[in-house]
């Protein structure tokens, strides 16, 4: 475990905590895309299939449980919680996220390390995670003013994969035959998708104005 990997995991965990705080504290999920949350739940469920079979470390197992349970809890909250569900911008969150699932599945069937259930699911989860933020970014562009917690949530979510890329670079130079081209490419695409968000997030921070993404 290197410092970049740990920083990435902590940033990812923090983004989940910020989202939970926003929903719990404001009892509202306005500005949050349910579709992105559903995609993340699918990402974790298909990536952590080895949760019950391979024990790598307590940290690894605990973090997997945290990510799976928090993503499912958020989806449940947005769908079924009597108060929160009414604040969901249903008519704004219209991204056809099934196309993202289908596309990732096709990619995983074409490009994987080994043609086994686990490896295809793992590749699927990597590809899906790269594009899972799209419904959320589209929703941000549509919702006029983005509240701070939502902006911070997306910011930390984007930053975590950037730390992972540094982690892969570090591992590439410190470990033999460490070649992970699937997460490499998907991670670059994923972080790239946040590029314009990071730019407008930086502007809103520098000019001390409300975050607003151009339509």
């Amino acid at each position: 475990m290197n410092v970049f990997r740990f920083a990435g995991d902590m940033t990812h965990l923090f983004s989940v905590l910020v989202l939970l705080l926003k929903i719990y504290a404001t009892k509202s999920c306005s500005g949050i895309s349910l579709k992105t949350q559903e995609l993340y739940a699918l990402v974790f469920l298909t990536r952590y299939l080895d949760l019950l079979t391979d024990f790598i470390s307590l940290y690894n197992t605990v973090m997997k449980l945290v990510f799976i349970s928090s993503s499912l809890a958020i989806v449940w909250c947005m769908r079924a919680h009597p108060v929160v569900r009414r604040t969901y911008d249903k008519d704004q969150d219209t991204f056809r996220h099934y196309t993202l699932v289908a596309g990732s599945l096709v990619l995983a069937l074409l490009f994987h390390d080994r043609f086994t259930i686990r490896e295809v699911c793992w590749a699927f989860s990597i590809y899906l995670e790269a594009v899972a933020i799209l419904p959320q970014l589209v929703l941000l562009q549509r919702s006029r003013n983005v509240d701070n917690l939502t902006g911070q949530y997306v910011f930390f979510l984007g930053a975590y994969r950037a730390f992972y890329i540094l982690n892969w670079i570090y591992r590439y130079f410190t470990e033999q035959h460490f070649s992970r081209w699937i997460p490499w490419i998907a991670g670059l695409v994923q972080t790239g998708l946040y590029a314009d968000f990071f730019y407008y997030y930086y502007l809103s921070w520098k000019n001390n104005v409300k975050l607003q993404l151009p339509a």
Binding site: I56, N60, K64, F67, R118
Partner: peptide, 10 residues
């Protein structure tokens, strides 16, 4: 690389 060490990341 064994499967486990390959999937040691989150």
């Amino acid at each position: 690389l064994s499967a486990v060490t390959k999937h040691d990341e989150l």
